[in-house]
Amino acid sequence: MITPIEAGLLVFIVATAVMTALLRDVLAAIIVFGGYSLGMAILWIVLQAPDVGLTEAAVGAGVMTVLFLATIARTTRLTGLEATTVDVNLPAAALCVVFVLAVLTTVPALPAVGAGPGENPAFGEISEYYVEEAYDDTHVENVVTAVLVAYRGFDTFGEATVVFAAGVGVLAVLRRGVFE
């Protein structure tokens, strides 16, 4: 059953997302998006995912906002301080409502939130194996790290390469003058 803390956080998250959509000023939208990231990090903690929460905290507080700011510093002349909202584009909004309804029809087929093994197909043999054998196999207490590097190391190698490639890609798009 939904707990009050989850309810409050979900309200916070949806409110920030809607505000991001409605605020016309880009800087204001970026500020509100920072708040969205904060709410998300707390939600990950409530959902018992501290690794993900730590990542979201570091990324949301440290890097994401700054990257957006750097971009608009180079591309946007600030319009002023007025807090106008965009006019809701009704056809687009209707399309999105249809999309949400379509996704919602699939939701009852999912297991209820908090359903354990047996009801929740995500808890299969594999996750049981990870939790039970990770320490014996790798001598690492944090199962997330064990899965990340030991069991799915090849996957992680690919992720590291994607990060590397994104760095190279940004340098390729904005190529001159950076490494002069």
């Binding site: 009050p4 500020i31 708040g35």
Partner: peptide, 20 residues
């Protein structure tokens, strides 16, 4: 929960501004 609710209220300030 109380602190989260205060944060939700603070969103009102972030929404109406009026200044950055």
């Amino acid at each position: 929960v109380g602190t989260v609710l205060v944060s939700v209220l603070l969103l009102g300030r972030a929404m109406i501004g009026p200044t950055m």
